[in-house]
């Protein structure tokens, strides 16, 4: 995406909405949460604790990897051990 500041005065420092989605956030994550849906009881603990709201609650629970920063809170809170943190280079 073209930087909005290069041709037009921005007045203050701002980006158009949705800017963070256009960047590749993988660089800031070394481990990622992976669901084992056979163990998941849909208790929503991961959904409640996730600081970035990345848990997708469909028929099977999964993670929005665009926003997930790999903090591991979901894995720590899961009462059934259904989420494991896997290194990005082992995915």
């Amino acid at each position: 995406m073209k930087h909005p500041w290069n041709d037009k005065s921005p007045l203050s420092a701002w980006y158009p909405g949705g800017y963070s989605e256009m960047k590749d956030p993988k660089v800031s994550r070394t481990i990622r949460p992976v669901f084992d849906n056979s163990k998941c009881i849909k208790c929503n603990m991961c959904y409640i604790y996730c600081p970035d709201g990345c848990i997708i609650r469909d028929d099977k629970y999964s993670v929005n990897y665009i926003y997930c920063r790999g903090c591991g809170v979901c894995a720590k809170e899961c009462p059934r051990g259904a989420i494991s943190m896997i290194r990005e280079d082992k995915v």
């Binding site: 007045l11 420092a13 980006y15 949705g18 800017y19």
Partner: peptide
């Protein structure tokens, strides 16, 4: 008459400015 928060046209304010832009923002 300035860029302000607007749900129809979302913007992200108060972002980080790196050395190649900060000086001009101050000068402005």
């Amino acid at each position: 008459k300035y860029p302000y928060l607007d749900v129809q046209n979302p913007k992200l304010f108060n972002v980080m400015a790196f050395p190649e832009h900060y000086e001009e923002l101050s000068r402005d």
